[in-house]
Design a protein around this nucleic acid. Structure first.
Lengths: 339, 339
DNA sequence: AATTCTTATGAAAACGTTTACATTCGGCCG
DNA sequence: CGGCCGAATGTAAACGTTTTCATAAGAATT
């Protein structure tokens, strides 16, 4: 048997006698032969691997994101090379270079990425999909609809009758934060009164905002925090000050982190289907990998308002009777747990 | 310039004139030249990549684990190929094969992995470190000290004066669950009374156990759930039934998931430094990669009891004044947040 | 029975590096 | 001034596949 025949037999493709094929398969199994992926890649110019460049790996968000990516990748027989924790643009560039030639496509999410950075460090031949970045054009991207989500939540609060709403902002230079603020502003109609408190996405900044709110003489009727962690901090400040939620003031957040439904009162928030974001981004990427010169497309992932008790909605009763009706969460498990 | 000289210049190693080196570096930069990693791997037989085979990617646990691995890998200039979501042994085997030849070393954590599986699907030449598996010998491994942690927590409850303690078990076939149960049993001394309630790590099973406890006439003084999610479910059942925690019954969990400190009362639990687990496993792996034929070593990662209000400890006051004194958590952030 | 066609297999080039070995060249020593 | 040595560079083999092209052997056609 020549190597050529073996190659053909193992790849199943070409014309090989059933007998030969069986014989080769038998020998291969007996020898525990596994084709050398690297050598194969060298000649086929495909690695069957996609790279994911992430800013970080902290917390539920990235866990869900990777899960979505991995799920979609596995379904297509693709391997996943992850790289994260790059604190600055230089590190991101290094990570990018290291992936060069190892991957068939790239998923990029990073606060350090802008158009110039990409032009400089990305070879144009490598299919790439950006996730949640502010890069304007020329690149394919998939973004969370921060704007739409914030708008929807604001409308939800307005519909509940609140007219005077405060918004706790995220960090000034943050893309998501900016979009959420814009959504809030644009949804606030003429008769309503919008205010802003500065935050930075941290729980502590939410706590500070909550203290400010509690101290106000003309307190707003509702407060909408740009993310859940600030909402949590704010809630504690309000409780501490004896301001009741939602009776004295309604509260809403953004992200639907797991603890959102566990705090008391459960937090009204905007749910982002993060796994879908990863999955969608990967599928988008695969499409670009298969069809060269696909026009770069910008897509957006919808999010949804999840009304809970903190906004005063009269939907489900609070904890505990509701806990068994919420979507089954596998989020917090011990390591080895099986299905 | 011949390719050989270029190779030498770029790898910095051999004897190349400073002038030539500069010239080559200049041209390479101008051409945006990046060496083809695959070709390089083919000849050097090193991929500078390590593979991580995980059972799943749900939740905080795996997020932290990957983070730890990634951190350590980055520090050594290694890439990280992750593979997860394999529901059964066959899928795990496929994933393992796919990594063959792509990685210099392997980190394996999977409920489907046993000694036989490994012997069958793992080439002995590939350095491997197992994480949290029950595999007995012949392989290097790093395990969480479930046994010690459970023992420590049980002692903590005993020290608080509780003599009659119930344990909510995890799934019967789960390795972590079994170890935790054993730790509990062994720590319960003669005069104390130990009971067991069946659980399966799910919140719902904890809830059921809580209802049972609430209905008992000779209720135990404390209950120790094999993981935090069951503790949470149990807590809600107790609250619902009007049983006060910790006044009527003390409660403890295991894992220290993020919500543990947010529920009311904050949950006493056992903290596992998951990122350290990943980091330690990778370092262990690197050691094995560098030194061939290192004797396979089994190591264990300590965990610590985190006393909070649910066990009745008089340490920190409950929420909210404590929230700013706890270790800084970056766990729940919006995606793009920067430092 | 000779020619052509088909089909299965083999031979060899190619992928882009690294590296052992060969070559060249200048300078130093005798 | 010639041979030798060392440093710098070039040549070519090797890594393990895939794939193109050639070849061999039957089968089918005439």
């Amino acid at each position: 048997m020549s190597v050529a025949t073996v190659s053909r037999a193992l790849n199943g493709s070409a014309s090989v006698t059933a007998q030969t094929r069986r014989r080769i398969a038998g020998v291969a199994a007996r020898l525990r032969y596994v084709p050398h992926a690297t050598a194969r890649s060298l000649v086929t110019r495909r690695t069957h691997t996609i790279g994911a460049l992430l800013p970080d790996l902290f917390g539920e968000f990235f866990s869900e994101l990777i899960r979505g990516i991995d799920l979609a990748a596995r379904a297509r027989g693709l391997q996943l090379l992850v790289s994260s924790s790059h604190g600055d643009a230089a590190e991101a560039a290094t990570a990018l270079r290291a992936m060069q030639g190892r991957v068939d496509g790239l998923l990029v999410m990073s606060p350090h990425v802008d158009t110039r950075f990409l032009r400089e460090h990305l070879v144009p031949a490598l299919p790439t999909v950006l996730m949640n970045t502010s890069v304007e054009k020329g690149y394919a991207s998939l973004n969370v609809d921060n704007y739409g989500g914030a708008q929807a939540m604001t409308r939800h609060l307005l519909e509940l009758g609140h007219r005077d709403i405060a918004f706790i902002t995220g960090p000034a230079d943050n893309f998501d934060a900016a979009e959420r603020l814009k959504g809030f502003r644009d949804a606030m109609a003429a008769p309503a009164r919008a205010r802003q408190l500065q935050g930075d996405f941290s729980e502590e900044s939410g706590y500070r905002a909550g203290r400010q709110l509690a101290a106000m003489r003309d307190r707003p009727q509702a407060v909408f925090a740009a993310n859940d962690m600030m909402a949590v901090g704010c809630l504690y400040a309000l409780i501490e000050a004896g301001v009741r939620v939602p009776d004295d003031i309604a509260l809403a957040g953004f992200d639907d982190i797991p603890i959102a439904r566990y705090i008391n009162p459960p937090l009204t928030t905007v749910r982002v289907r993060i796994a879908d974001l990863g999955q969608g981004a990967l599928e988008h990427l695969v499409a670009r990998m298969e069809t060269a010169d696909l026009p770069s497309q910008r897509r957006t992932l919808a999010c949804e308002v999840v009304p809970r008790a903190s906004s005063g909605t009269r939907t489900a009763p609070p904890v505990p009777s509701s806990i068994h009706h919420r979507p089954k969460s596998r989020s917090h498990r011990s390591p080895g747990e099986k299905q």
